[in-house]
Design a protein around this nucleic acid. Structure first.
Lengths: 136, 136
DNA sequence: GTTCGTGCAAACGGTTTGCAACAAT
DNA sequence: ATTGTTGCAAACCGTTTGCACGAAC
């Protein structure tokens, strides 16, 4: 898409087929893919893309704040397609990670926390998703 | 200590010099050491302890619920000496992780979360610790 | 023609595993 | 004798890096 090229350019990123593929996969995804997940999908769109380029591109996107890395799992980083702050729920049975809307959790920080200058926070929940649960 | 041996035995763990060293280091620590941090300290107490044994022992302790692994950082797990639930604050400048008492943060979960059967949650905060901050 | 992006393979760092020696029961 | 524990080295897996080629300005 031409507007995707524009979008990248606006963020100081020169568009290339590989980067467009990574952007398509990672920006248009409600999931929380690992770098390798991204690579698997990217190769289908752009078979020449190497693992190194995918990693480099993801790091570039992090630097340019197009995606946010999350440390929610052992051993690997997952990428957040980033549309405003939100919380996370991790299904302990499947390992799947769900976004939880910001307003679904109310957090009140005690005064005792004045020792910390808190720039950001998130609630990380673990458990099991109920069987007949609605979308997301 | 004899009571430490007892404690391990109560948890179905056969005491050995290596395991006692790991227990001493990891259970009696307010910090959040990585496996390698633990190894460094353990070798001073028990020079024969190998890296593999420290890793194996830590995994054993996780399995027996004596410590809890936390995924708060890229690339490495840190271990929580585990005395009841609490939250975490990560100093973005130093990387240091601080325990935040459970009551210092009040969390109210919305009804919309009924889709999830939440077993546990924690708040992860990031920012900078203030210079003249009190203990912990 | 200099800069930037890429692919490949090698290197890297944290962690696990196979195996042979060794206690402990 | 069987079972469990250890040390070592090698394997492993996710990620980064060095380098030479190629495309873009």
């Amino acid at each position: 898409m031409h507007d995707l090229i524009m979008f990248l350019r606006e963020n100081g990123i020169q568009a290339t087929p590989q980067r467009l593929a990574v952007a398509t996969v990672v920006l248009g995804s409600r999931t929380h893919p690992t770098a390798d997940n991204v690579w698997q999908k990217v190769r289908k769109i752009c078979p020449t893309a190497s693992r190194a380029t995918v990693y480099n591109t993801l790091n570039l996107f992090i630097e340019k704040k197009l995606v946010k890395p999350q440390f929610l799992r052992e051993g690997t980083v997952v990428f957040d397609s980033l549309a405003g702050p939100h919380h996370h729920f991790i299904d302990e049975a499947t390992g799947r990670i769900y976004d939880v809307p910001w307003d679904a959790v109310k957090v009140r920080l005690d005064e005792s926390l004045e020792a910390f200058d808190i720039h950001a926070y998130q609630v990380v929940m673990r458990g099991r998703r109920r069987r007949n649960a609605p979308k997301n």
